[in-house]
């Protein structure tokens, strides 16, 4: 069970850091000389990439916490709870996005992502080490 938890935290941590760095770098790509200015691959303007860079910075930090949890699961099991909360919030707005017609071009993607995030949140919730393990360590 702890092994599965470590793998989950490790995979999520790496994914968060990679996506976070990508989002962070896209800000500088947007403002680079000669850039098309469309914020590729995300079709956002200057205000949009500002928040994309903010999200990327947070994702890198969050991913680092998850990688730490993968190394020492018993040290901070509440990282799993915090991550599960973040994933649920992500799922909630994606469900709303799917209902709204404004995001019609995305098709079923928001709903599929919401389902995936909810399953990951459940896995984190039930695989995390008990709080007593943290006290013992």
């Amino acid at each position: 069970m702890v092994r599965a938890y470590r793998i989950l935290c490790g995979v999520l941590g790496v994914a968060f850091v990679v996506f976070g760095l990508g989002a962070f770098v896209s800000f500088f790509g947007f403002h680079a000389p000669g850039s098309a200015g469309l914020g590729e691959p995300l079709p956002v303007g200057p205000n949009g990439v500002y928040f994309v860079a903010f999200t990327g910075s947070c994702l890198v930090g969050w991913g680092g916490c998850l990688l730490g949890a993968a190394r020492r699961p018993e040290a901070a099991p509440w990282i799993a709870t915090a991550t599960a909360t973040g994933l649920v919030l992500n799922a909630v707005y994606r469900i709303f996005v799917w209902i709204l017609g404004d995001y019609h071009a995305l098709g079923n993607l928001p709903r599929v992502e919401a389902g995936l995030f909810l399953l990951l949140a459940l896995a984190l919730l039930w695989l995390r080490p008990p709080a007593s393990a943290a006290k013992a360590s």
């Binding site: 599960a84 649920v88 799922a91 909630v92 469900i95 799917w98 209902i99 709204l100 017609g101 019609h104 709903r111 919401a114 389902g115 909810l118 399953l119 949140a121 459940l122 919730l125 039930w126």
Partner: peptide, 27 residues
């Protein structure tokens, strides 16, 4: 943990049944 699981489970069910609802058919 069980309360959180019930909440997440409810959201999961919502994502599954959405396409069949009048709300989900919009757009």
């Amino acid at each position: 943990r069980w309360v959180a699981t019930a909440f997440i489970g409810a959201l999961l069910v919502l994502t599954l049944v959405l396409p069949g609802t009048s709300l989900g058919r919009r757009g």
